[in-house]
Design a binder for these strands. Sequence first.
DNA 1: ACCTGAACACCGTTCAAGT
DNA 2: ACCTGAACACCGTTCAAGT
Lengths: 198, 198
Amino acid sequence: MVDAGTGRPMRADARRSYDRILKAADAAIARDGATTSLEEIARNAGVGSATLHRHFPSRRALLNAVFHDRIEGICAQAHRLIDAPDAGVALIDWLGELCRYSAKTRGLAPALLQWAGDDRPLVQDSSCHSMLHDAGDRLLRRAREAGQVRPEVSIDDLLTLVNAISLVTEANSAAIVVDDEADRLFAIAVEGIRPATN
Amino acid sequence: MVDAGTGRPMRADARRSYDRILKAADAAIARDGATTSLEEIARNAGVGSATLHRHFPSRRALLNAVFHDRIEGICAQAHRLIDAPDAGVALIDWLGELCRYSAKTRGLAPALLQWAGDDRPLVQDSSCHSMLHDAGDRLLRRAREAGQVRPEVSIDDLLTLVNAISLVTEANSAAIVVDDEADRLFAIAVEGIRPATN
DNA sequence: ACCTGAACACCGTTCAAGT
DNA sequence: ACCTGAACACCGTTCAAGT
């Protein structure tokens, strides 16, 4: 493990703090969502609040770290689908998986928003959002070349749409809501509301 | 103006407080969104914070009051469209208007979420959400009877989808985002991403 | 009946002081 | 180099005391 700022290896105690914060954050976010108390995370990690802030200068940085591995797994799935027989189906399947997963994982949808906070200009970063963007773009390009997708639809459009559905599903999740709400909305969003033409 | 709790007319000073809070809330929400500080609203209204809490027991109650008139206007528009020549187009037009308006009005999308907070079971209430539900349902039924909409699509599906798009657009609005993002997403969501079949 | 100001228990962020 | 605890300026909510 390497310090993000200096690029040098982390001291043992720093590494230990980092790991404990990440573990506590994971549990807290799963329970209370993306706006959970950072102070409580530090408390549960047995760490001073200032330590949390040095390791993760913003809430967004913490969210990105928490979800990094899982998002990497989803991107790997996109890589596997790049050889699927039907390029259009592969794209839809992957987006649907992302949507379902994101809708049921508290905190993930908010983490994927393209905030213009105090973060760097998102050029060539390794945030969850840009990882998904790159992985999805390959599937989209192939589907577009196969004539399966309207040429004016961008990967940003599709990811934002999926994110929108996940966001509203998570926000509504305390209400009386069918648990496949994300599935229903995704199907409508992708297929249109007109009667099927077959 | 009538007190929501007792149903009796409000005393003059209560009415004055109510109006000043609403005016201050409107400005604050337009500037900072639905999570703006209630305390600051009370300060700007020249009112004690406890006064705000009695008039509006929850943040949601305040949001509903702030947007009530505007939502009523949009519902009136739905009523006018009920006689439009093409029932399917009327539905899409109305949803598109709602989407555009909601996306550009800070705080409105969050106010329309179907939270299950400490609020009553939403039976026959006059919240913004239920007003839109009733108005939209008429347009949808007519479009469905005309065979313009798949029978399994509900008004909740459509309103939630529109709300999802508005929500993500508002959340992204500080980022580098084309200002017609809501339009693009709405078009995709409603028309599907497959090539046009004409 | 309505409003006020203070009290309470929380936040996130920062900074001097410790090891 | 890294961590800690305290300090600071904020929240939302509640309640006794005022008019």
